[in-house]
């Protein structure tokens, strides 16, 4: 299952999304996330979800692979959604399993749970699409460019961008490492996939210790390798490829802003109240 998580990986390609300017992609993502959290109604969320699905199709990344990657994370999402149902007591009571006590499933809880799931799916979809379609080098350059005004405040922008990129780059590597270590300990009978909850948690020690050790080893090896290649902050570096905004970025911006406005507008518009789905979070 862990092997299926592909977040942070880059899949080279030639699609519309791949060709967007990486700076634009990061800005779009920020706009999208803000709009997503402004959404207050079911329809606007659906619109946002549809938009992210449309982007996935445009990127020509296999939806099956994204689904598999997401499935692993959905376990946590569903868990939070269940908590939402259990602890939210706003709205009408739908089901009261125990006559005594105050526990009840309410409309507020159910809506909250559905909202949470849809919102997080939409969020993960588009965020993971950023790394799926942007190489690490471009991503660093873009982050650096976007943060460059901070240079005036003597913020080490280049180092920050580099750190972020390395962190992203190592997600797949570490996932693979976890997978190997888990298999090796399972080969010695570690109860990672069988046994009681307590046994499983205890067996995790045998995974975390080697993982920690190897992360530090990797970090120091990478640092040495970078030093051997005379890596410096690159304050006066010039670029081989200069990033330029194109018509694609303009088109994407127009569509995204239209969708976001529509979504936010729908949140406060009465047609969603007329239909069954009411705004839930006030």
């Amino acid at each position: 299952m862990i092997k299926d998580i592909t977040i942070g990986q880059f899949f080279p390609g030639n699609s519309f999304v791949h060709k967007l300017d990486p700076r634009a992609k990061i800005l779009f993502l920020i706009v999208y996330i803000v709009a997503l959290f402004l959404c207050r109604s079911f329809f606007s969320l659906l619109l946002m979800l549809a938009f992210s699905l449309f982007t996935v199709i445009l990127s020509r990344i296999s939806p099956k692979m994204i689904w598999k990657s997401m499935k692993a994370i959905l376990v946590i999402v569903v868990f939070t959604a269940v908590l939402q149902i259990v602890y939210n007591d706003k709205g009408d009571i739908l089901w009261k399993p125990f006559a005594s006590g105050s526990f009840a499933v309410t409309t507020g809880g159910v809506y909250g749970a559905v909202f949470l799931i849809v919102r997080i799916i939409a969020l993960i979809l588009l965020t993971s699409l950023l790394t799926y379609t942007t190489s690490a080098t471009l991503l660093t350059d873009a982050i650096e460019k976007l943060l460059s005004p901070l240079k005036l405040l003597h913020v080490p922008v280049h180092s920050l961008a580099m750190m972020m990129t390395i962190a992203l780059r190592f997600i797949p590597t570490l996932l693979r490492e976890i997978d190997i270590i888990m298999s090796a300990q399972k080969a010695r009978g570690a109860m990672l996939d069988n046994g009681s909850m307590g046994q499983r948690i205890k067996a995790l020690v045998s995974v975390f210790v080697p993982l920690l050790v190897s992360s530090f080893r990797r970090a120091s090896e990478l640092a040495t390798a970078m030093e051997c290649r005379c890596y410096t902050d690159g304050a006066n570096r010039t670029r081989l490829r200069v990033m330029r905004f194109s018509w694609r970025d303009a088109a994407a911006a127009v569509v995204l802003i239209a969708v976001s406005f529509a979504a936010v507008f729908l949140s406060f518009c009465p047609i969603s109240t007329i239909l069954l789905f009411q705004p839930v979070i006030s």
């Binding site: 190997i180 090796a184 080969a187 009978g189 020690v205 045998s206 210790v209 080697p210 050790v213």
Partner: peptide
């Protein structure tokens, strides 16, 4: 699960799996 004990597999670079 039983086969894991009957067939002992020592992974490549097994020293990276030491933890105790």
């Amino acid at each position: 699960a039983k086969a894991r004990f009957q067939v002992g597999l020592c992974f490549q670079y097994p020293e990276y799996q030491l933890f105790a």
